[in-house]
Amino acid sequence: MSFGAAASAHRGHRLASDAPCPCGRRGFGSCCGPVLDGRAADTPEDLMRSRYTAFALGHARHLVDTWFPRTRPDDLAIDPGIEWMGLDVLDSDTDPDGRSGRVHFRATWREKATRELATMEERSRFVRRGGRWYYVEAL
């Protein structure tokens, strides 16, 4: 899957605090909103949910900032032709040392032009450095 258009510091769409969060967990203001605004995610799952929300709302900068530098691609952009439809977290864990974790999730999207639905399933690895979680890679 291509991320499409050129990356930028684009902040994306902003939702009202009481609007449902795109990740589906609770209201945006008490879910992914604060993480998109720069607050550190508490868990790997919280970071993964905020990254899904960043794709859904077009927050390319959040994706860059939360991707571990050694594994981050040079060109990271969000495809405006994709509409993210839903997220299911299937499993999530943090290692006992609190420095790494994994999240298994399924995300559904729709191609805007064709209305075709698609699903991706991934097991992601995260690390914690300097008090912040970072996405490292798909396992």
Rank of each mutant, 00 (worst) to 15 (best):
G33W: 03
P34H: 11
V35R: 11
V35P: 00
D37W: 07
D37T: 12
D37G: 08
D37S: 14
A40H: 10
A40K: 09
A41N: 06
A41C: 08
D42Y: 03
T43Q: 03
P44W: 04
D46S: 09
D46N: 07
L47G: 00
L47K: 00
M48Q: 03
M48D: 01
M48Y: 04
R51E: 03
Y52R: 01
T53Q: 05
F55S: 00
A56M: 09
G58E: 08
H59I: 09
H59Q: 12
A60D: 04
A60F: 03
R61Y: 06
L63A: 02
V64R: 03
T66Y: 02
T66C: 04
P69H: 10
R70Q: 14
T71H: 07
T71F: 08
R72W: 01
D74E: 13
D74R: 13
A77P: 07
D79Q: 09
P80W: 12
G81A: 14
I82Q: 08
I82R: 08
E83N: 04
G86P: 08
L87E: 07
L87S: 09
V89M: 03
V89Y: 05
L90G: 05
L90Q: 12
S92P: 08
S92E: 13
D93P: 00
D93K: 09
D93G: 10
T94H: 01
T94A: 06
D95P: 00
D95T: 15
P96G: 07
D97I: 12
D97M: 07
R99L: 15
S100V: 14
G101M: 04
R102W: 14
V103N: 01
V103H: 01
V103A: 03
F105I: 10
F105K: 00
R106E: 14
R106C: 09
R106K: 12
A107L: 10
A107S: 13
W109M: 06
W109L: 04
R110W: 07
E111I: 13
K112T: 14
K112I: 15
A113Y: 04
R115P: 00
E121T: 15
E121C: 07
E122D: 13
R123G: 06
S124M: 11
S124L: 11
F126C: 00
F126R: 01
V127P: 02
R128K: 14
R128P: 03
R128W: 03
G130D: 15
